[in-house]
Design a binder for these strands. Structure first.
Length: 480
RNA sequence: UCCUCCUUAGCUCAGUUGGUUAGAGCAUCUGACUGUUAAUCAGAGGGUCCAAAGUUCGAGUCUUUGAGGAGGAGCCA
């Protein structure tokens, strides 16, 4: 007997052949129709049981959630709603699921809130929505590697435990195996990290960028794609304490090249999923349309999901300097009418998310790249412009998501970098290796960091970042 | 961390100015039916109204505190 996945049978025209399929029961209707799902695709395989010639004990165990193995003949479906169905000859119950227990879980076939699904994150992947989201997450992840591989990038695994806290990207989680109840102390009462596992204070990485830079200055084009940790007390739909970040870093590449790369990369991976996740996308689009029916008109998305993705594929990202952006905002209606919570008055102000949203969603109506930010509001490693007050930074802003990627041309001049570090109090002894790269064959180079979950958020149309990662880690939540 | 809102059956939610025995749909159980698409029909069971304290003759409803959750803001990806 040939064992097949549901996706293979649904797309098959090899009817009248016998197959075996393993999967989980989604529904058992009329004592006759099993909706079988094995995760290989959104669709269920309809398995038609000859209930008059099947043991009652077996029939009773065909319940929602049960794992079963069915063998039978693939036929054109007699009913509507599917093109093929499996005429069952034998059924093995592999793992039972008792209805009295199932009714307490999100497996029971009905609508559940995303909050409830989060509480049962170990079961939520068995729902249509999470099956679709997680298949798309996987495809997107593959597309990321495909893009970089095809474009001459090398995949670099930067360390997850880092010895420096000078990166300044956010609060960090400490890594230690000291006895927390009784840590060794130095003479002046501080914790003595020289006795810790690594002989120094260590943290979980907030970015692989600095290490990636050193590899770009040897391999040419590199990227990282790994877990990243921020101990910020952020409680939003766009933040996680543990998330996956993609960080390309390219030698001999300036900011324009960096923006080109970001745009080309994002368009490539989105195009990939429109071609490889058709039914999942269609399902998620319909789910969203259904959900939006209950919303007031003004809160509805102007475009269905697939149209929104297509729009990003077909239109260039609007590139605008920080200075131009400030002018637009200063002259905007919400600014003049004081509708913004933070009124833009002077050059140098940090853009709040309400401003970013205005630019992306109201003014331009497309993804926007803002570049050449004031040096004062950006990180120390960004290349200082000749004007002495702006740096070669860029943020990619997406509708509904905000900042999806942020990057810069890196400061490649040793003296400028060193004085900047001293100015803001970063210990140059900690980053001696980073400074070293500016001494030995330094060159123009650039890169950016892109939050993978934010990409998945956009591609799936989901609204909470906790619903696009299997087990979200956020403040007060590390269940599972 | 700040602001706002929420917590009633397994789930989603009603619950009137504070007044008898707290309701509905779905799910579950029992039975019927069998080409169904979240199958349908009939009946049954199912509640520490998030927790504690308070006001009151009387609290699901009002007050205070706490816990958990959601949305927005900040920080950022």
């Amino acid at each position: 007997m040939i064992i097949k996945k549901v996706v293979e049978l649904i797309e098959s025209d090899q009817v009248l052949q016998d197959y075996k399929v393993n999967g989980w029961v989604r529904a058992f209707r009329s004592n006759r129709f099993i909706a079988l799902n094995d995760g290989s695709c959104l669709e269920n395989l309809q398995c038609v049981v000859d209930f008059e010639n099947t043991d009652d004990e077996v029939l009773k165990k065909i319940t929602t959630g049960a794992a079963i193995s069915v063998s039978g003949t693939l036929k054109e479906s007699e009913g509507k709603g599917q093109s093929v169905e499996l005429e069952v000859k034998s059924i093995d119950i592999l793992g039972e699921a008792h209805p009295e227990d199932v009714k307490k879980t999100i497996l029971q076939p009905k609508k559940h809130s995303f909050e409830k699904l989060r509480e049962q994150a170990h079961l939520r992947v068995r729902t249509n929505t999470f099956g679709a989201v997680m298949r798309m997450r996987s495809k997107l992840s593959f597309a990321v590697h495909q893009y970089f591989n095809d474009n001459g990038f090398y995949y670099v695994n930067t360390p997850i435990v880092t010895g420096s806290d000078a990166e300044g990207a956010g609060e960090m989680f400490k890594v230690t195996n000291l006895d927390l109840k009784n840590p060794p102390k130095t003479e002046d009462g501080e914790i003595d990290f020289s006795q810790d596992f690594f002989g120094k204070e260590t943290n979980l990485t907030v970015s692989g960028q600095l290490e990636a830079e050193t590899y770009a200055l040897g391999l040419g084009k590199v990227y990282t794609f790994g877990p990243t940790f921020r101990a910020e007390n952020s409680n939003t739909t766009r933040h996680l304490a543990e998330f996956w970040m993609i960080e390309p870093e390219v030698a001999f590449c300036d900011l324009e090249g960096n923006i080109d790369l970001a745009e080309d990369f994002i368009q490539y991976v989105l195009k990939y999923i429109t071609e490889h996740c058709k039914s999942d996308l269609e399902f998620l689009e319909n789910r969203l349309l259904e959900e939006e029916k209950s919303k007031p008109e003004k809160d509805r998305s102007p475009m269905p999901l697939r149209e929104k993705i297509d729009f990003v594929l077909k239109n260039n990202f609007k590139r605008v300097s920080y200075t131009e952006a400030i002018d637009i905002l200063r002259n905007s209606k919400p600014n003049k009418k004081k509708k913004f919570n933070y009124i833009i008055e002077e050059w140098g102000a940090d853009l709040q998310s309400e401003h970013e949203r205005y630019l992306v969603e109201k003014h331009f109506g497309c993804p926007v790249v803002i570049y050449d930010y004031p040096a004062d509001i950006k990180a120390f490693y960004m290349r200082l412009n000749d004007d002495g007050k702006t740096v070669r930074a860029m943020d990619v802003l997406f509708p509904g998501i905000g900042e999806i990627a942020g990057g810069s041309q890196r400061e490649e001049r040793y003296d400028v970098l060193l004085s900047k570090m001293r100015e803001i109090g970063i210990d140059e002894k900690e980053l001696w290796w980073y400074l070293d790269t500016r001494k030995f064959g330094t060159c123009v180079h650039s890169g950016f960091g892109l939050g993978f979950e934010r990409l998945v958020l956009f591609a799936t149309g989901m609204s909470n970042i906790r619903d696009v990662i299997p087990y979200p880690r956020s403040p007060q939540n590390a269940e599972f």
